[in-house]
Design a protein around this nucleic acid. Structure first.
Length: 266
DNA sequence: ATGGTGGGTAGCCCA
């Protein structure tokens, strides 16, 4: 029995509860990490998760914006709700979960989108995004602990993580200052990009398709904004993953789709 | 070249 972790930017957990239930029923991940829950903690739909068999629920939410939650079928222990850039946004939650006879430290992140203008001098949201990613250098993969980091990191680091590298070089999410800072942070932290581990660099990978396309599937102008990383010591346990592209076509979809990673940890 | 579509929530913020 593999240990499975799903990550999904849900763009309002309350509005999306029907398709969250569908994911849990059809794929039954052991742990689900949600981003953009857009709900204060006191209004989090705990009952629906319990009813679906996910009785272990931790959240870091706020009213209207951002918000992350980690729910599980097995016990999870709160480690930290970290504050970044000295701003009280709800963008991080780490938990410890028992798996494979040991424990895994699991980070759930929602990195700032960064606004439209890719110039930190005139766009403070872009400045914030760069600063946030830089501050993630303070969240390294532990050398002697099994660590996993998932979430909507809002950056598509490689050429084939976007539908057109050339056309997106000046578009927030794929600018060189973002992708270089992102990859430097990932490597410095000792994190392995599991979604690219066994996939050729020239193969397109997307987890997000804009709401603004007339036909998201036909135009297929996607980006890989959602990520699954682990510490090097977990790589031998990594058994593959799935991008649930079909979820983009579900009723009232999120613009992101779930990614489910499997580990041989039982 | 531009604006396109969503969500939260009260007239705009944000993705």
């Amino acid at each position: 029995m593999p240990f499975t972790i799903a990550t999904w930017n849900i763009n309002s957990v309350r509005l999306r509860m029907p398709i969250v239930e569908r994911l849990l029923k059809e794929h039954a991940p052991d742990v689900l990490c949600l981003q953009e829950t857009k709900v204060p903690d006191e209004l989090f739909p705990e009952k629906a998760f319990r009813k679906a068999g996910y009785e272990h629920i931790l959240f870091h939410g706020q009213k209207g914006y951002h918000g992350v939650a980690t729910v599980a079928r097995r016990p999870i222990e709160l480690v930290e709700k970290r504050r970044f850039c000295e701003i009280d946004d709800s963008r991080h939650l780490s938990v410890r979960v028992q798996a494979g006879g040991g424990s895994v430290l699991l980070h759930n992140f929602y990195v700032p989108a960064g606004g439209d203008e890719p110039d930190p001098e005139i766009n403070r949201k872009f400045r914030h995004k760069l600063d946030f990613v830089h501050e993630m250098n303070g969240v390294p993969a532990s050398q002697d602990d099994a660590s996993i980091l998932v979430g909507d990191l809002n950056i598509a680091p490689q050429e084939h993580d976007v539908w057109s590298h050339k056309q997106l070089l000046n578009v927030v999410s794929h600018t060189p200052v973002e992708t270089e800072g992102f990859e430097a942070m990932r490597r410095a932290g000792g994190w392995v990009d599991l979604m690219r581990l066994n996939v050729p660099a020239e193969q397109k990978l997307y987890t997000w398709w804009s709401y603004r396309a007339k036909d998201w599937e036909a135009s297929d102008r996607g980006r890989r904004l959602d990520h699954v990383w682990s510490s090097a010591n977990l790589v031998p346990r990594f058994k593959g993953y799935e991008i649930l592209k079909a979820a983009r076509g579900w009723e009232k979809p999120s613009d992101h789709v779930p990614v489910i990673a499997r580990f041989d940890l039982e």
